[in-house]
């Protein structure tokens, strides 16, 4: 299985935790190449969040992660749809998916 290409987007301020870069394309190897104890090759968002933490998040991970998911106040969008519509953490990433992590705003 070749590498999985994912458009990874951050917005609403969440990009501040990731070197202020709002848009990037990342390539994921087969899952069992990244996590040696994994028994499958496909990625779900659950593992992808761990990958983001390992590879992109510099410090203060509590501003992004809570438990094995994102913290409250961050909305995850899979191809412009709320991730709850496609299985949340269990959504299996597809080649060329666009995954966006957006902080909700409260100012006015």
């Amino acid at each position: 299985m070749c590498a999985l290409k994912i458009d990874l987007l951050f917005g609403g301020g969440a990009e501040l935790l990731f070197d202020k870069i709002k848009k990037r394309q990342v390539e994921l190897p087969p899952l069992n190449k990244y996590f040696s104890d994994a028994k499958k090759t496909e990625w779900t968002i659950r593992e992808f969040i761990v990958w983001i933490k390992d590879n992109l998040l510099r410090e203060r991970e509590e501003l992004f992660i809570q438990g094995d998911s994102v913290r409250p106040g961050i909305l995850v969008l899979v191809n412009d749809s709320d991730w709850e519509l496609c299985g949340e953490l269990d959504y299996q990433l597809q080649n060329n998916d666009c995954i966006m992590f957006i902080s909700t705003l409260h100012g006015g």
Partner: peptide
Amino acid sequence: VFPKPPPPETIGSC
């Protein structure tokens, strides 16, 4: 959509 409020330290203001 947002059953839980965000942690206070993550909330920004104008």
